[in-house]
């Protein structure tokens, strides 16, 4: 009997993961050279120097750390020692705020661009120039004008989420099928009602695709932005743990960043499925 494809795929996934963990474990198990030193000096040097333990944490170290964080995600021991949960909450809040502000601008503006060939041509050069600018390039300008690091990070999220959604909205609105618009015309449906009952549902899948690209970029950018502005957030956490030389914590942070990014994408994918219509 053959198992169904999802089951077989799951088995391969688990096998690959187990193989990866095994190689990782074996690669970090070995002992390096141990130097003789006085016991006082050995206390300062740590187990890498005294016992020859690998400087790279193994999967067991990371697993233990992960469990530790999972048990106490929200502890707060002052500005430089907060739980991963708190840091993630800061990052997610910034991303969502910047992202929602961007959607409030991008969807209406994209709608107007899509509906008006004049606006489309008039705004096209600006969009083409602004779109390829790395969001982090805005950071100094944002810090200088806004004078607040946290708000600057939100602004950077705003500016990078803007373009994919705006461009996709404009495209979706401009490519609504002529026959559907003709249906509305022959039924004497007014412009506003036409926008909401024909164009919006017809363009919704394209708009949602743009929003999905935007949230992906926003989550990529927040880590980098928080490394720059510091203070709070998962990006700051990564940089802080690098300064602490806690590679275990850095790996834990990398894992959680990936997981949260995946969840954000899944959420929007589900929304996209809600508005998608079969033809």
């Amino acid at each position: 009997m053959t198992l169904s494809l999802p089951w077989r795929a799951a088995i391969v996934s688990v096998a690959l993961f187990a193989g990866f963990l095994l190689i990782w474990h074996l690669a970090t198990r070995g002992t390096g050279q141990v130097q003789q030193m006085s016991p006082e000096y050995a206390k300062l040097m740590g187990i890498t120097a005294t016992q020859g333990k690998s400087a790279m944490p193994g999967p067991l170290d990371v697993g233990a750390k992960l469990w530790e964080h999972a048990r106490r995600p929200f502890y707060d021991n002052g500005p430089n020692d907060k739980g991963v949960g708190i840091q993630l909450a800061f990052s997610i809040a910034r991303v969502l705020l910047g992202y929602l502000l961007a959607m409030l601008v991008a969807i209406p503006v994209g709608f107007m661009i899509g509906m008006s060939p004049l606006l489309n041509r008039a705004l096209d050069p600006f969009i083409q120039v602004l779109k390829p600018i790395s969001p982090l390039a805005w950071m100094p300008l944002a810090l200088y004008t806004i004078k607040d690091s946290s708000t600057s990070a939100i602004f950077v999220i705003f500016i990078c989420s803007l373009w994919p959604t705006m461009i996709n909205t404009a495209f979706g609105v401009a490519s609504v099928r002529r026959e559907w618009l003709n249906v509305a015309k022959t039924l004497e449906v007014g412009t506003l009602k036409r926008a909401f009952t024909i164009i919006l549902p017809a363009a919704a899948p394209t708009i949602l695709t743009g929003m999905r690209i935007s949230i992906g970029i926003a989550w990529l950018v927040i880590v980098a932005a928080e490394m720059l502005v510091g203070g709070t957030g998962i990006g700051y956490f990564v940089w802080n743990e690098w300064n602490n030389l806690s590679i275990t914590n850095v790996i834990v942070a990398i894992l959680t960043i990936g997981l949260v990014g995946m969840l954000l994408d899944l959420g929007l994918a589900r929304l996209t499925r809600l508005v998608t219509f079969p033809e």
């Binding site: 099928r177 026959e179 559907w180 249906v183 219509f277 079969p278």
Partner: peptide
Amino acid sequence: VIFQGHSLLPW
């Protein structure tokens, strides 16, 4: 108007 393609709103 009855259009050549049925032109129903698929959603």
